[in-house]
Amino acid sequence: MVSIGLPGGEQVRDMLAAQVAGAGGGFTFKGPAQPVLSSGFRALDRLLPAEGVRRGSLLEWLAATEASGAAALACAVACRMAATPAGGAILVVDRRGLFHPPAVLPWLEEACGGRGEALAGRLVVARPNRDDDEVWAIDQALRCAGVAAVLAWPQRVHPTAMRRWQLAAKAGGAVGLLVRPQAARRESSWAEARVRVSGALEAGRTDSLSLRRLRLALVGGPWMGEGHMEERTADIVLDLARGRDGTLPERDVALLRSLPQQGAAQREGKAVCRAS
């Protein structure tokens, strides 16, 4: 009698998890290796699937409200990307014309080591008047090898456009930081990770003006069985005066600046989600 080795329950679960991971969300990334950089925030690095920000990928920041701090965190990560040795420019695609550079330029100066002349050409703003121009501008910026990060606030994104952006980022090596409303959670996405950002205010605690507490939640994690999607969360403190992790001591900040790949090994392209 020939015994047919049917896969057991655990094997079936692993197979299904691999298929779900490959079906959407972009967690499985096949292709040439892309360096993974630290976002500058330890808790955020632990939250992201690649344990850092992978160059040539998209990250979606789902803002709980319009004043939740998602854009600030995205700007801080963008400054971090521009300050790495590979460097590059930050391109802000400001469709609505609300971006206020005085809130970000000091962060960029701080990230670049406090050299005023180093800011020339580091931050460029594009203001398209139409939605199709916005899609095109983001695509062109992601394709450019000299761009470190693209920051945009697209409101309505067609899945085809998002896929175009993912391929453009993969080709150019830039990081796409898309700040979107929370309602976009129901849409499909080609981003490597979707992080919901909301402000965190502890009752009875008074924070200084320069610190902002944010609660992050990774949206759409792998299905872990038992009918629920695991949601991984993290709390961070954003130092608004310098655009960096407010919990890091000074010496670690300097170390982080000099070693962009600290704590994140280069992977072959397959992101692994680990339960926290």
Binding site: E66, L98, P102, P106
Partner: peptide
């Protein structure tokens, strides 16, 4: 190019400024 002294308090400035 260099940031003026008056602009060195980003914690007091919002990222989105209404026109």
């Amino acid at each position: 190019c260099a940031l003026p002294a008056g602009g060195r308090f980003p914690e007091r400035r919002p990222i989105c400024l209404l026109p």
